[in-house]
């Protein structure tokens, strides 16, 4: 078990290193270097930089050194929490991203939570009552959910919420809390705003997971150990929940790993439509404006978060399946 964990952890670290190299390449992709871009930016706004100043900046940032050393310097800064300066915002990248990272996490995790809460019971029901009216209804709803683009659903829900419920939709905060410092009231305000974006983002994933759960469970329900459980005298519910559902959870947990990055990257359009202060729209802006330090930082953070998500799903798998836990025993 420890070996398994260590191996996963090692793999995760290696993946993170590769992500950082990839990010570094992205940052260096535009022609010229950061100082050229900085000078061009300043020139565009009317001021100018002397050649000596430029050289001094290059030395300061280590841009005159070999690429590998530059990567080392950059990584050193990143590890200290310094992601460089955003050229568009003229502020440190960390400041620009700020709360957005945590808000993105909040939205994604609640969407994931919602996905599980809805998909699990419906998937179980659909498998246990295959071809029943309920199964058909959920299947139909599921396919509709899969087919509707979620930004469209976001628009519809915003309209309905505004028109009929008079809700202040869009964003994650009410106007008075948008710039306020963190407080209990602000957290409560966030909690009230979370359900709508979470529901919109959860929809497609939920539909998908219902299908996965239903198919998995249908496979497992045919296995002899289910008959064993019934032959013991367990109630049908208990027999199904304890044995085949547990087995069907296996692929369910591994789907967590891909669902998480999907939620973050797939949320860009929805975030724009709903005006969410998450990193998705920021990444889009940064890419459009060729703001490479900002884009690089976001890519790096998302990459690392995905790796962490995968690690969590590996640990879940370990908990669910003793065959993985006891590997090499």
């Amino acid at each position: 078990m420890v070996i398994y964990l260590l191996r996963r952890l090692g793999l995760a670290l290696i993946t993170c290193v590769f992500i950082s190299i990839f990010t570094f390449v992205i940052i260096r992709l535009p022609p010229g270097d950061f100082v050229d871009a900085y000078i061009a930016n300043l020139a565009a706004s009317g001021s100018s930089v002397s050649a000596e100043q430029a050289e001094a900046m290059r030395r300061e940032y280590g841009l005159d050194r070999p690429v590998v050393v530059q990567y080392g310097i950059w990584m050193g800064r990143v590890l200290k929490g310094d992601f460089g300066v955003s050229m568009v915002w003229r502020r440190p990248v960390t400041e620009v991203i700020g709360d957005r990272l945590w808000l993105t996490m909040a939205v994604s995790v609640s969407a994931l939570f919602l996905t599980w809460m809805i998909a699990l019971p419906i998937g179980i029901y659909s498998a246990m009552r295959q071809y029943s009216i309920g199964d058909y209804i959920f299947t139909t709803l599921g396919f509709i959910g899969l087919a509707i683009p979620n930004f469209l659903l976001a628009l519809i829900l915003m309209y309905l919420g505004f028109r009929y419920l008079g809700l202040n939709v869009g964003g994650l905060f009410s106007a008075e809390y948008a710039q306020a410092p963190w407080s209990l009231a602000r957290v409560w305000d966030l909690t009230k705003h979370l359900p709508l974006p979470a529901a919109v983002l959860a929809m497609a994933g939920t539909a998908q997971l219902i299908r996965i759960m239903r198919a998995n469970l249908l496979d497992e329900l045919r296995k002899p150990y289910v008959v064993t459980a019934r032959a013991k005298g367990l109630t049908e519910m208990r027999a199904v929940l304890k044995y085949p559902v547990r087995a069907a959870l296996n692929p369910f947990a591994s789907s967590l790993a891909y669902l998480f990055p999907y939620l973050v990257s797939g949320s860009i359009i929805v975030s724009l439509v709903l005006g969410l202060p998450t990193v998705g729209p920021l990444l889009l802006q940064a890419l459009v404006a060729q703001d490479m330090f900002l884009a690089g930082a976001i890519v790096l953070l998302l990459g690392v978060m995905t790796v962490i998500g995968t690690l969590i799903s590996d640990m879940l798998l370990m908990w669910i399946d003793p065959r993985i836990r006891l590997e090499g025993r």
């Binding site: 064993t228 459980a229 032959a231 547990r246």
Partner: peptide, 16 residues
């Protein structure tokens, strides 16, 4: 009581 044919698949791998 019922005894099964396949001793592998008749027991769940998820529990001791």
């Amino acid at each position: 009581g019922l005894i099964f044919q396949e001793p592998m698949t008749a027991l769940s791998v998820h529990y001791t």
